[in-house]
Simulated scan of single mutants.
Amino acid sequence: MKKLVNDPENVVEEMIDGYAKAHSDYIKRLEANDRALVTARPKDEGKVSILVGGGSGHEPAFMGYVGEGMADGVAIGNIFSSPPPAPILEVTKAVDNGSGVVYLYGNYAGDVMNFSMAAEMAEMEDIDVEMVVASDDVASAPKEEKEKRRGIAGEFFVYKMAGAAADFGYNLKEVAEIARKTNEYTRSMGVGLSPCSLPQTGEPSFELNDNEIEYGLGHHGEPGIKKAPLESADRIADQLLDEIYKDMTLKEGEDVAVLVNGLGSTPRMELYTMFRRVEQSLKEKGINIYRSYVGDYITSLEMGGCSITLTKLDDKMKKMVDYPVDCPMFVQK
């Protein structure tokens, strides 16, 4: 598993350094902590700020979503590891406009612990913080234990809606409530085709036989719900959608946003083939696709595979998903 790296122990710092230099018109590093990045664009006074974060290796998440219409800052951890409280706090102090900061992150033990610690430290600095935890992965826990589920690609829609709500002038609690509602209306499930490898080890993150795939695999290589022989794209899409349909209430005539997300090494050809079947399936059920996204939005290094995400939309959420965005790795006009 070949990689373009120098010292594997410095890969995160060198990535951040390159990113900040490549996109200096969008983003800047904070001198207080080199894992803390904030927007370089002017901000509206009094606007609620959005802070995202998580482990490296998921690019364009999370730093790729700092920009106009989405996040105001990001705290970056080691590969597949939560950022510690220090960079989270530094970003919080830098982006707060006096109206508070909303933390958005996935439901992983390290993230929950470190973002909670940072929120307590921010309160000591007289900064109001709301925290919203993404938990969209239907494969990671049963519906009655949804609070235990991982956050995967559906986090993208949480960022999208929260960023728009903040720009619309919603207050701190209202922005957080929009983010929680989006998470509640979002379901995802993925399939793994091939593993990734960490630069420090060079070893595969999991093992599959040559003609084998794994349904429900996590973004860090966490075990899924079953291994199975490789089938057609349509059959794989149907199995992912069946699990999502069983878990969320969708009625004929309702609108959804769809994300077919690549995990790092899956060609767009295959992702669009998957989306083709998603569109057919939803049409058969009388569900309208209001917005669609296909590509690498939250990855797992060079893992092969993809995930499907559906987010149910009401009229207010449609305005938020339509809101323009200008980030280094995501632009929507």
Results as ranks from 00 to 15, higher is better:
Val260Glu: 00
Ser197Asn: 12
Asn261Pro: 04
Tyr170Gly: 05
Met248Cys: 02
Leu193Met: 14
Thr249Asp: 15
Asn183Cys: 04
Leu240Pro: 10
Glu254Asp: 15
Val260Gln: 00
Met189His: 15
His220Ser: 12
His219Arg: 09
Glu284Lys: 12
Glu284Pro: 12
Asp210Leu: 14
Gly190Ala: 05
Gly224Cys: 03
Glu252Pro: 06
Leu241His: 10
Gly218Pro: 00
Val175Asp: 04
Gly253Arg: 00
Arg187Asp: 08
Arg187Asn: 11
His220Asp: 15
Leu282Glu: 05
Arg268Val: 10
His220Pro: 02
Asn211Gly: 01
Ile289Ser: 02
Thr182Arg: 02
Gly190Cys: 05
Gly190Asn: 03
Ser265Leu: 11
Phe275Gly: 09
Met274Cys: 12
Arg187Cys: 04
Leu193Gly: 07
Asp242Asn: 11
Ile287Phe: 01
Cys196Trp: 04
Arg187Thr: 09
Lys226Gln: 00
Pro223Met: 03
Pro195Asp: 06
Asn211Ala: 02
Leu263Lys: 09
Glu222Ser: 12
Ile244Asp: 11
Pro195Gln: 07
Ala233Tyr: 07
Asn261Asp: 09
Thr273Ala: 15
Lys181Asp: 02
Tyr272Leu: 15
Asp247Gly: 10
Ser281Ile: 00
Gln280Thr: 13
Gln280Arg: 07
Gly192Lys: 01
Leu250Phe: 14
Val175His: 05
Gln239His: 15
Phe206Gln: 02
Gly169Arg: 10
Lys181Ala: 10
Ala237Asp: 09
Asn183Phe: 09
Leu172Gly: 02
Gln280Ala: 10
Pro204Ala: 03
Ser197Ile: 07
Asn261Tyr: 10
Ile236Arg: 02
Gln280Ser: 09
Glu174Cys: 03
Ile225Arg: 13
Pro195Val: 06
Glu214Ala: 03
Glu184Leu: 14
Glu243Ile: 00
Lys251Leu: 00
Gly286Ser: 09
Leu259His: 04
